[in-house]
Nucleic acid binder design. Sequence first.
DNA 1: TAAAGATAAAATTTATAAATTTCTCTCTGC
DNA 2: GCAGAGAGAAATTTATAAATTTTATCTTTA
Lengths: 238, 238
Amino acid sequence: MNVNLLKKGAESPATLATSIYERLKADILSTRLEPGRKLQLRFLIEHYDAGQTPLREALNRLTTEDLVIGKEQRGFFVKPISLDELHELTKTRCWVETLALRESMANATPDWEEALLVAHHRLERTPRSLNAERFEDNPEWEMLHRAFHALLIGGCGSKPLIGFCEQLADRLYRYRALSIRKAFRVRKVGDEHAAILKAVLDRDTAEAERLLQLHYEKTADIIRADLGATNNDAAATR
Amino acid sequence: MNVNLLKKGAESPATLATSIYERLKADILSTRLEPGRKLQLRFLIEHYDAGQTPLREALNRLTTEDLVIGKEQRGFFVKPISLDELHELTKTRCWVETLALRESMANATPDWEEALLVAHHRLERTPRSLNAERFEDNPEWEMLHRAFHALLIGGCGSKPLIGFCEQLADRLYRYRALSIRKAFRVRKVGDEHAAILKAVLDRDTAEAERLLQLHYEKTADIIRADLGATNNDAAATR
DNA sequence: TAAAGATAAAATTTATAAATTTCTCTCTGC
DNA sequence: GCAGAGAGAAATTTATAAATTTTATCTTTA
């Protein structure tokens, strides 16, 4: 669902395999397919209405991205979650995104700054939840949120690094999806984005890096508290 | 050939798909399969003596790693090389490996330092080329070289980051393989490794980072000179 | 109760069929 | 007479269906 939201005019996903890949990925990231779950071919064939070959290809791609675990001769599984992985992913994301942000700011152009301003403006005026009472995921907000963060690091000048950051974002998205219903409303995430934007436009690199890092660490803290409190099976690493 | 050299006692690659994946990857990295070449199923089936499905699965995995380009409905191609990509990969590798090295050194333990010393010792006493006259790739040296560099960043405490570094190393290996025959003997790479080791054991983080970065940039310079001089088709980006 | 064998289920691979692209040849128009 | 468009055939990629191999489960036996 929130995968590939950035590529708007993506050309036709002509093959079934890629279409399935995208659907499967979206279902895993949104945790509609729960972490650890076994992905039986028979079930997938029926549920996604496709043959074995395209499914198998999709699963193999996801294996390389570490969203699916393929155990030789005994099938595929949704990658389990763990507090360890949450910590590792967050730490890594802080490292590489502050690095990428630093480079982006070093390459800053007026165009980039203006695009960032616009992206933030759009994000700001979009409601986090479709329902004011209880949380209801707003795909529009998710897309804009992702676009804002992507833009922050987008000027670093390294496609491989950007790709790696996207992968980390994907893998962390799953953790957010698990706790978001409860974390809703305990946090003013909008203020954090505004502060980051200000630091960037002020050309205060050190401050921008500090705030971005804090932003991700706070997210992880909330998820960790929520996950640790509700169900302890999250601690199962394998 | 030099893929997975680090995992010595790797458990049985029970499925054909994985075995094909490894062989294909090795052939691409060594440029036995030339950059840009079309990977026709018919040819692959015959050459690797396997069915379509395992081949297709292997190709899909390699696509995610950006070693193979899959064009929808029109087949697979070995990722072309370009001076742009060489530059981008090198830059990125310098960024993330200095980062990882910094963390590794922050977490340094006597065990780690000793392992590094041993890894360097082994590398040092292994000949770069099997033939003293003209270059002849020594797989043993390649393995030890890779192990030394892997150890340098291995203590950073982030599996995702280590994985990313490995991927960058793979993608750059291909460029080295293209120019190594000529670059042989113009460089005392051993001295560079020794200097890095010394800086690490001296706990001089800044110097170690500087030397590691220099090491990679020098490699890229040599490749760039060699590639630009001999054949200009390397400049074709897509 | 534990081990061995048999049965069932599931994953992997091969074989076959369908769909798409690419190439070639012809025909038309300038 | 030549360039370009279009139709048809060949080649190739993609998808489905069938067969094989491996793993897991259950029963039986020692």
